[in-house]
Nucleic acid binder design. Structure first.
Length: 288
DNA sequence: TGCAGTGTTGCTTC
DNA sequence: CGAAGCAACACTGC
């Protein structure tokens, strides 16, 4: 499931592969993926538009297009973008034999864009939860206005973090995953951040002292930065644009390690349900 | 075979 | 108003 580091990895790769390219065809077998307008209208509008910029806000990917239009993509649980090369052979567009479009997971490709320079961009999405929208500037701003702070923004310092959590009720794990508080953290990285700080996922935010908040703030920066360096996680079906897996497994300490030994103290990692999700933690290191 | 588990977001319900 | 539950969808593992 793509969280901030996975989305950032994808955006950096998109800037190397599709920037300044123009859409000239689009195909789907799942028209409901395109929200708000019909697929036919979407197709008519996007053909001929050029990608001027690719960036990220929380877990959303935004393509700034020519003509003041914006392509907004949220990958949700199982969506991921892939970019490969294609060619015209015997009157048919075919992917070149090498590359991400050959991966077996890509039987889940439901949306495909053809761009110039032999480039093909595909959305693979097992559960079809991903969202794609074509918006004008006002609509885009409205979609993004409720999203919380960007944790890796240079201006996001400890004071700002404290303000984000001020007067927040609830358990620290749930608050960290709340996109309206801080953007981009999901189930994997909230577990990893809290293990590093030795704080129990069920701790009430209001009970955390300044030192503990500082630990969490530093762990957010550290874990997310490290995960981006490693190209994202690799235990779900996440793939980089090239179809490769990320390398975050080298750093993964608790997520989906139930019953395995804590790397710090050897105690078996436990799993608890919280709001319908799993929290993985060390019952000895992370006291409530 | 069938059913729980997987997790993001947004809507519904209490 | 806020929290909790569930639906959107489809596959995997027990």
């Amino acid at each position: 499931m793509p969280e901030l580091p996975e989305v950032e990895t994808i955006v950096r790769d998109l800037n190397k592969t599709v920037l300044k390219k123009t859409f000239f065809d689009v195909w789907t077998d799942s028209p409901k993926t395109i929200k708000k307008i019909t697929f036919d209208r979407f197709k008519k509008e996007i053909i001929g538009k050029r990608i001027e910029r690719v960036w990220r806000r929380g877990k959303n990917i935004i393509f700034d297009l020519s003509g003041e239009k914006y392509l907004l993509l949220h990958q949700k649980l199982t969506g991921h973008l892939l970019v490969g090369k294609w060619q015209l052979k015997n009157g048919k567009w075919l992917p070149l034999t090498q590359g991400p479009l050959e991966d077996p997971i890509n039987r889940f490709i439901h949306l495909m864009f053809w761009l110039n320079n032999n480039t093909m961009m595909a959305l693979s999405d097992l559960r079809k939860f991903a969202k794609v929208e074509l918006l004008n500037k006002k609509e885009l701003e409205k979609e993004l206005e409720k999203i919380g702070a960007e944790p890796l923004d240079k201006n996001f310092n400890f004071e700002k973090f404290q303000n984000c959590l001020k007067n927040k009720k609830g358990k620290i794990k749930q608050v960290l995953m709340n996109q309206e508080v801080i953007a981009g953290i999901g189930n994997i990285y909230s577990d990893e951040i809290l293990w590093r700080t030795k704080i129990h996922p069920f701790r009430e935010v209001s009970s955390l002292n300044k030192n503990e908040l500082k630990e969490i703030f530093l762990a957010i920066k550290k874990v997310l930065t490290k995960a981006i360096e490693l190209g994202g996680e690799s235990i779900s079906d996440f793939r980089k644009l090239s179809g490769e897996k990320g390398q975050f497994d080298l750093e993964r300490k608790v997520y989906q390690r139930e019953g395995e030994k804590c790397f710090r103290c050897g105690t078996k990692i436990e799993r608890l349900k919280i709001g319908g999700r799993s929290a993985h933690y060390c019952p000895k290191c992370q006291k409530i």
